[in-house]
Design a protein around this nucleic acid. Sequence first.
RNA 1: GCCGAAGUGGCGGAACUGGCAGACGCAGCAGACUCAAAAUCUGCCGGGGCAACACCCGUGUGGGUUCAAUUCCCUCCUUCGGCACCA
Length: 824
Amino acid sequence: MKEYDFHEIEPRWQDRWEAYKAYGTEDTSEKPKLYCLDYFPYPSGDGLHVGHCRNYIPTDVISRYYRMKGYNVLHPMGWDAFGLPAENEAIRLKKNPREITQKNTANFKRQLKLLGTSYDWDREINSSEPEYYRWTQWFFLLLYKRGLAYQKESEQWWCPNCKTVLANEQVIEGRCWRCGTPVEKKKLNQWFFKITDYADRLADDLDTVDWPERIKTMQRNWIGKSVGADVVFELIPGRDGSAHSVTVFTTRLDTIMGATFVVLAPEHPLVGEITTEAQRAEVEAYVAVSRGKTEIDRLSTEKEKTGVFTGAFAVNPYSGEKIPVWIADYVLMGYGTGAIMAVPGHDGRDFAFAQKYGLEIRQVITWPQVSYDTSAWQDRYADRGTLVHSGAFDGLGSDAAYATMVETGKEQGFAQPRTNYHMRDWLISRQRYWGAPIPMVHCPVCGTVPVPDDQLPVLLPDVDSYEPSGTGESPLARIKEWVQTTCPVCGGPATRETDTMDGFACSSWYELRYTSPHLATAPFDRKAVDYWLPVDLYVGGAEHAVMHLLYSRFWTKVMYDAGLIGFKEPFARLMNQGMLLSYDGQKMSKSRHNVITPDEVVEQYGADTLRLYELFMAPFEQEVSWSKEGISGAHRFIKRVWELAQRTVDASRGGLIDAPVPKLALQINKLVRRITEDIERFKFNTAVAAFMEYFNFLSETVRSDEGVLSSREWQEAMRTMLVVLAPFAPHITEELWKDYGNAESIHRQPWPSWDESKLVESEIEVAVQVNGKVRGTMLVSFDSSDDELKASALAQDFVRRYTEGRIVKRVVAIKGKVVNIVVQ
RNA sequence: GCCGAAGUGGCGGAACUGGCAGACGCAGCAGACUCAAAAUCUGCCGGGGCAACACCCGUGUGGGUUCAAUUCCCUCCUUCGGCACCA
């Protein structure tokens, strides 16, 4: 018998598939289409580990399955190649990041091929190539022209390790999302995308996509819509007679009669102007301390609120009451107006603050059967209720009071309805070299002007040194000959914008590029996009829930508004694979020395075994640990398939016979149905189990009668099994298919259907319960009626034991499942 | 604190829409083959109990609904993930 030599078989078929472009996509087709996409991978120098394969293997199974089902499948791959790690490695090795990136992408591609994946490599893209980033820049200009890109000087998150700013989404618990370094604040002039303009649509359209509820919730929370009002408080003029006012944002205007002080964020621009001389030293010291705190410090001081009185007083526009103005770092400059009216009677944070500093706590809302106690906070004090101590508004409900107050405020010009979002605008500038240059020019005469479309791309200059300065200035700023340019408007001397774009810009439109990856005249071909998009199935880890997935949804909506595309959501269905931990239960990482690479596993067991094992180990979406022993089960199975299939080939040489094989028709039809259903439900683990069960059945059958191997029915069933196994284990099935004498690839075989009539067994086993406890089973005809079931159940010896001398109160029969006898 | 997901053998997990809990695999034990080992094959494999059978217990906890609950409802506990002074 021929040996199972996966070292020889797998590379041979991989080369052949590549040479024959076996998995090419048709540009147009009568077939139904399926766009199956993996997250845009960043080609890191470490290469792939087996955890990454948990993404690529299932999408490959899906793609292969749908091709066999007669779909035109787009299953592409490319590289999100701009980014810090390549740049940092390049600096360390004193090389160009372009070289590093080329080396890394080649390695990724080699590893993906090693797994037997079926990507259409003719559509490979690379976001760091000018043919690609030219269009990323083009989109920047599109946003600019639509008023969605602007420059603003402000305090921003700064990662001192990466030496660049970060967007809000990219700071996780006060640390840089990429390297984990605590972030700092830096005041810089930066480019932003106005994603907040789309906040409502980004929240609402989540209802239209088939995504995990978890991800949708995270996005909704991140967007964080809150409806309220801006209210203007005039300040009592200081000695210099200057007139100031402060605007606060509140969602609880109904509680304004309980506002006993106003709080400004320490960074609030008014702080310096309104602070009285007596308070100045104290206020300045406080501002200095809170500026010096990292975000982590601020979070950790959560329990104890601190603040300082400014000496200034504000006037409640609804009551004319004079209340003190404080500063405190529990008020954030970045949200709302950076100032609040404090209602300690009905807000837990204000309550804690007021208690600490002896400020008045006043009840202005009542609820039936709730007594109010100013010495201890209760969460229900924040509930809506009926107004008291609120003058003319007394007796109104919260909602009615709110509406009346907004009206009054609007008429008199001191209040305005307003909606705020937790989400901030997307900070897009980066002070690093390895990214797409922002295509803008600063002209002393014309101001900041866009580079005309026909002058794109603004090429990233090739230079020797591009180490980040750390000053908040991009390394490109040091390249004088690149910075010096002419103004596209007046032709005079001008300078280029030196910041590059956040890498998330590149991945905000890449799914469109795959439809027409080599088009030189536009970012994508509208016809191709209309045909392929939206992506039918998008698969990746959950870590990009509010970064990439929010950004690309935003760009899609901008494109839709610009009339470039006809859909509003890029990814119709999203699936997150569970994380694969190492054998020690820890995340795989170089520093923990627990990384398992596909290279070593393929060397030891072959790609088909690796694929089967990764699919089998746990449900797709669930986290699971790698098991060094567990993979041997998958390998044993693969070897059993080989052995039995080879024996079947050998048996066919002696001529075939027409003898029926007991239960085979039932089993093979059951197998086809289970595999089909499991793939469509993403239940790869039970699909693999079904193959194993089927093989256990075959082994037993052969053991009892070797003769079945030469029967036509067995031979046919073996072929069908190989066909449905092909998406899971593409190499071994291709090899066996060839050994069966087929010239065409197994991966071009049509997906088999199953015969429902073959799934019916003539005799089935039914459990018999007495008082809900199983006491035995009985064999009955599959079409027995309820009455027949009841009668034969009552006739069983093991039932009589329980019924004798007792009253049978009730008998419940469930066809094909169970009979339950209830006795007294 | 808030939001979300999940708790099933020694381990990974299975169980359609309430109908025989533990499929499939790993590990373990026993046996076959072998001088031996590996590989392979066969059998056993939740706990208690018994000579054996019967039987009892068992899906995080406690309760409920039902002829019947891993599945539905309520309570609590634990773990993981997300957000975290958002006014």
